[in-house]
Amino acid sequence: MTDATHPSVAETRAARRVTLRHIADSAFLIIVIYLVMAVVYVAVQPSALSAYSIESLFNNSLPLMLAAAGATFVILQGGFDLSVAGTISLVNVVIATTPMEGPGGALALLALAVALGMAVGAINGIIVAYLRIQAIAATLATMIICQGIALLILKAPGGMVSDFMVYELTASLTDRVPYALVIAALGVVFWTIYSRTDAGRNLLAVGQDRKAAALSGINVQRTEFFSFVWAGAFYALAAYMLAAQTSTGNPSAGEPFLLLTFAAVALGGTAFGGGRGGVTASLFGAATLMLMQKVLFAMGVSSFYTGVIQGMIMITAVLFSAAVHHAASNRRGA
């Protein structure tokens, strides 16, 4: 055999390193976890495959998936955004108190919702990126303010969500594929493209090394700012789908999202501190979190104790993803 057909030790090592790194960097792991869990679910509960139960599973999961997708933008650049709870509450009540019927109305509401979400995001972005206030503290404040505004708009749960949103958006395409799944898939497509544009690449670069990114000519402040704006847009989408799914408005609709969103992002393997991970991973992280509840319920675990397992899985997921990443980057120059 000649040398050309016989890869050197270094080359094999390089090849393995690439594979490991791809696994560490992509949404691969969480997708596998999700599929395994789905198989378990179907095994425990065969009725899970019915069109109705698939539809309801995705309808239930979508708001959290979108919220986690939004939070990922901020976390990737090394920031933090607690305003997710407030933004969702605010957008949710705005939708429920702005009656607009039909597909046209739904579209107008969507535009309104996204504009509102982006406005909140822009405020966060200004405070954090330009006024240089620590993200956790600043978004804690804006979250509280948004919740207050939501209470001003709607004192108690109520309001109206148009029939079109409630019935059509939560249905399935040709009665087979839930629209919720289509929207999630669009999210994946969006991120696949966005992460390859300069804006997406800059997001990851800033998260990896702020100083180096700045010295490379990246406008770090603008990158930070837009991460909050994108986040706001996705929170608004989450609120929009939440309104469609619950068919009412609730001034505290966003509260359950606060911790779950970060749990989903962590489960997806996006590093807190930035630079590693992605929106696709978070979408699957959130879906896994929601599916897990169903699986635990189907397996007969008392609902009291689902939290124990959720918490354990979160910690394990973070440890596991860190370990894989460590293994991937440790191969270099060994």
Partner: peptide, 20 residues
Amino acid sequence: VPPFIMTMAVGIIVYSLCLG
């Protein structure tokens, strides 16, 4: 484990134990 995740997870676990 990042403090945010660790303490959140432990909080969820502990709360769930309280519930049970």
